[in-house]
Amino acid sequence: MATTFLPPRHEDDAASVEPRQLTTTRSQSDRLFRGGVSASGALVLLIMALVGIFLTIRALQALSQAGFSFITTQAWEPDGGNFGIAAVLSGTVLIALTAIFFAVPLSTGVALYISEYSPRKIRQTLISLVDLMAAVPSVVFGLWGFFFLQGQIIGLARWISTYFGWIPFFAVDGSDPDDPLSTATVFTSSTFIAGIVVALMVAPITTSVMREVFSQAPVGEREGAYALGATKWGMIRSVVLPFGRGGMIGGTMLGLGRALGETIAVFMIISPVFVFQPHILQNGTNSVSALIALRYGEATPFGTSALMAAGLALFIITLVVNFIASSIVSRSRSGAATDG
């Protein structure tokens, strides 16, 4: 008979023998290295914490005086004690939403084109091109928006306000479609134009996140869809888009974060007003970063503190948006495929 022979167990041994202690004695250079990199980690943490704490402390000075009215006041007269971010924050959000409205269809299209439709030969070039566009300085987009787009877009803005003016967002005060001599300047420097320019700036970022996710859609499922008789678009709708949904939302949120913090291009285009301006086609809007760029120079110490509070509010909003974005991306199925 073939049975396995088990060696006799020594019961007393198991009780008396302790697990072997594993210790590492690190050499001098290793200890130096570990100390060095730990110190740099701590230093980075210190710098970051310093920025956050300093911002908060300086902002609290203004916040404690303004109290809750900081969120509801539209005017910005910190030295008169009457200041708040209702106007600038709503302007920031409207510009960012306009930007996202244009950027998301554009970047979805480009991402799908690069990952699904483009010829394999030019795919790498297109990817590089999109990455390069993400690195184009914002001042360049600002120049283009101010000197070119502004003049071209007025016709479109006028058309939208004439035919869709009954929607409150598209109404423009002071424009009369029946009066051919009515001035076009009510359509300049608007949320709409700033939003389009910012859309061009965030589209490359959103595109590269989406493309990355789309190209990771599993080959087996793609071929399965084709085998069941799907057309290319059918395959994209049933495999690629559901797979990449997390990446699409995450990329959009990342773009939104960038759009909220965008300064110089917005600052060049808008004409700042300190009232809540829901009419996106109408001249005059504002954003938190443009407010800081506009008012930092003449600000008194208390005014600087008020600007800090506005900056802190913007930072918190971007932080929340980015945090939601990264948690969506990492929790979605699309993120799981990256750990190979």
């Binding site: 980075v44 943490l45 970051m48 914490a49 920025v51 300093f54 911002l55 300086r58 974060g257 909220l260 913090g261 300064t263 970063s289 800081i292 760029a293 930092y296 600087t304 600007l307 800090m308 900056g311 802190l312 913007l314 930072f315 971007t318 932080l319 948006v321 980015n322 945090f323 990264s326």
Partner: peptide, 19 residues
């Protein structure tokens, strides 16, 4: 913390150094 700081708008970084 460093990932959170990537959300810092650049103008706020400038404002921090300025202040």
């Amino acid at each position: 913390i460093s990932e959170a700081m990537t959300a810092l708008p650049s103008i706020v970084a400038g404002l921090f150094i300025y202040a």
